[in-house]
Amino acid sequence: MNEVTLFPEQASVFAQEVDQLFWFFTVVCGLAGTLTALVVFVFSIVYRRGARRYAHSGHHSTLLEIGWTLPVAVVVMALFVWGAKIFINLYNPPESATEVYITGKQWMWKIQHPNGKREINELHVPVNTDVTLNLTSEDVIHSFFVPAFRTKRDAVPGRYSRMWFNATKTGSFHIFCAEYCGTDHSRMIGTVFVMPEQEYQEWLRSGAQELLSMADKGAMVYARYACGSCHEAEERGPSLESIYGQQRELAGGNTVLVDESYLRESILRPNAKVTEGYAPIMPTFKGQIDEQSLNELIAYIKSLSSVPAERASMGGN
């Protein structure tokens, strides 16, 4: 038999917050449950058949009903607020976070850093730094789960979702796929290596001279598909300069925030949300461009904008 653990390691800022909430819950719910069970138990003994007879008691009391319902309602609402606060933070990555692209595929995690470095089933990140993961999938739904960080999010084909964390402890921690994805679901596991900043930078740079950054590769994808023939030269499509992070006016009067998901949609289903003033003439690139190139292309478009300052800091310095 192997060594036994009963509580997971705490290796991120969230882990501390989530565990606090967990223990508070355990105490509150534990008390409530134990107390109720105890009352049932005591009643079973005290009022067992053959014990002394009691005068017939009433069998309804609105006051009592309200008296025991209100506290339940108040307590669960308080718990809800606390939980929601953590959650909103959990799924809203800060702007300045270091960004990593993760693509799930039966049955592996393909990971790409903005400077072009790639790994499979291993994720290297710096300690005490905000790290955002940009998730998608090539085939079925997967879910990127790091128990030591107390967070996970589904990698859904056809869209991007984001999660983030700030690791507080160097070391290696499990990555699990948490959404059932077929035969080797339970082998779609990996390791996060949390490293001191210095070591991380060295790791990131090792072999970097042969590497093109994601944005540079994206520029090649951009050239390969001749995106510029419409988006630059003839202006059949809107310019892609500085659009990332901006609100766009759409034909029909709506607006949309230009983020990864919008860019992705506009490449694969160009006519879904057309920019005001342009005709819906762009052909679809669905089925012609793989997930990796798509990530790179989007990284390139993002690099044309001044908003995501993190991209500059990622690869080098």
């Binding site: 917050e17 989530v18 909430l21 967990f22 819950f25 719910c29 409530a32 449950g33 669960v76 718990l79 809800f80 606390w82 939980g83 929601a84 606060k85 953590i86 959650f87 909103i88 959990l90 799924y91 879910s143 789960f145 128990p147 107390r150 967070t151 996970k152 999010r153 948490a178 959404e179």
Partner: peptide, 17 residues
């Protein structure tokens, strides 16, 4: 009672699935 744990967003993300 553990259903209340799971209904709570901050906890569910970790224990979901």
């Amino acid at each position: 009672l553990t259903g209340v744990f799971l209904a709570t967003l901050g906890l569910d993300i970790h224990v979901h699935d």
